[in-house]
């Protein structure tokens, strides 16, 4: 099966859908690996929210592109270069600080992005944005809370959070390299970047984490299907079953 997408808006929306999906898959890896039972369940809930969001977005993608493929087909039958998630989303769960920092950096961006999409001309997307914002609000407050606990906790927790942030910030600047599709679909791209910078700078300063100068990565843009080395491993696990057993069905 070769999954293809022609509609421009569908192609653009795939960026948000894929970002939610890959964030969700990374968070799902935390299920049974959380630091304690309650947090394990909380992280799994975040993952479920992200998967649910991705599925709804794939449905809109499918509708825009003539319903040629199902959400499952978008998820399980595309290869690395056909995914358009931001590279931040695929960064691994090196330790708990990475999980929290990744979610925080993503949620601050997602909050402003979906706020703007509430006024989308696409009524499906506008309605979904309103629904999704409530989830983002909660997930953001959860991971922001941990940013404070880790940043202002012990020397060790601060150190680990600093390492996570240092790594993850290498992958955030590409989010704001807006192209024509972004500009056609977001009312105010620049505001997404300025809102993100203000909030990230504010929280990092409050939690005693430095925002260091990050040397420009030579990797190409996620909008062209380029990734860090981590996506292949993630997809091989996520896609294994339906590819090995194409006839498998939920019973």
């Amino acid at each position: 099966m070769k999954v293809t997408i022609e509609n421009k808006e569908a192609l653009w929306l795939l960026r948000l859908a894929d970002t939610s999906l890959i964030m969700g898959q990374r968070m799902a890896e935390m299920c049974s690996n959380g630091p304690f039972l309650e947090e394990d369940i909380a992280l799994s809930n975040v993952s479920l929210d992200l998967f649910g969001r991705a599925e709804e977005l794939y449905k809109i993608v499918a509708k825009l592109d003539g319903d040629k493929f199902t959400p499952d087909e978008y998820v399980f039958h595309r290869n690395e270069r056909e995914f358009y998630n931001i590279k931040l989303a695929e960064q691994p769960n090196e330790d708990f600080a990475w999980v929290i920092a990744r979610q925080f950096l993503h949620d601050v961006y997602a909050k402003e992005a979906f706020s703007q999409l509430e006024s989308s001309k696409n009524s499906d997307l506008a309605a979904l944005a309103t629904k999704v914002l409530k989830e983002i609000e909660y997930n953001l407050s959860h991971c922001k809370d941990w940013m404070y606990r880790l940043g202002l906790g012990t020397e060790e927790s601060n150190h680990r959070l600093q390492e996570a942030v240092d790594h993850l910030l290498k992958y955030t600047s590409e989010i704001f390299n807006w192209d024509e599709l972004d500009k056609a679909n977001y009312p105010d791209c620049e505001k997404i970047e300025s809102t993100w910078n203000n909030e990230v700078n504010r929280v990092l300063a409050e939690v005693n984490i430095k925002r260091k100068e990050v040397p420009e990565l030579t990797m190409r843009d996620f909008r062209d299907g380029f990734h860090s080395e981590h996506i292949g491993h993630l997809l091989s696990i996520m896609q294994y079953l339906p590819r090995a057993y194409p006839d498998a069905k939920w019973s």
């Binding site: 309650e38 369940i41 909380a42 909660y138 809370d145």
Partner: peptide, 9 residues
């Protein structure tokens, strides 16, 4: 944390 955990559970 208690109220967040309670919400999630």
């Amino acid at each position: 944390m208690a109220i967040q955990n309670a919400r999630d559970l």
